[in-house]
């Protein structure tokens, strides 16, 4: 019931965070710690892969909200991919698609990360 794991992968300058299991008030601190570590290492491009995420509560959603400002301030972003219908409904009900980019699969998300990086460079140039 309260099994939750976080795994990380690196793809170029994007950190892919894989969530597995139940993300609720009990297990949210695990995710919080992961994000804190990422921010400490200045890794601001975060893709959250929800393929194996069974359930998310408001506590879990709160974790993303807590780090969003800092991440975007540093020209990074938190994007989501591979959500199940059930998980997407939870995000959608609260209106999260307005705030976050949610993609069907990882590849699409990665492409968008790179695009925005390039567009940033273009802006600067």
């Amino acid at each position: 019931m309260n099994e939750f794991k976080v795994r990380q992968r690196q793809k170029e300058n994007i950190t892919i965070v894989e969530l597995q299991g139940y993300l609720d008030a009990h297990t949210a601190p695990i995710l919080e710690q992961s994000f804190e570590d990422l921010l400490k290492e200045h890794r601001y491009n975060i893709l959250v892969n929800c393929k194996n995420l069974e359930y998310i509560s408001s506590a879990g959603l709160g974790v993303f909200m807590a780090f969003l400002d800092e991440v975007r301030k540093n020209n990074g972003d938190i994007k989501f991919s591979n959500m199940s219908v059930k998980i997407f409904n939870i995000f959608d009900l609260l209106g999260f698609p307005v705030l976050y980019e949610i993609y069907k699969d990882e590849q699409e998300a990665i492409v968008n990360f790179l695009d925005s990086r390039d567009s940033d460079k273009k802006k600067k140039a």
Binding site: S58, A59, L61, G62, V63, M65, A66, D69, L93, L94
Partner: peptide
């Protein structure tokens, strides 16, 4: 907005 902390929200 003034009083809610970053992690909290209200539906």
């Amino acid at each position: 907005s003034g009083s809610l902390d970053k992690k909290s929200f209200v539906s």
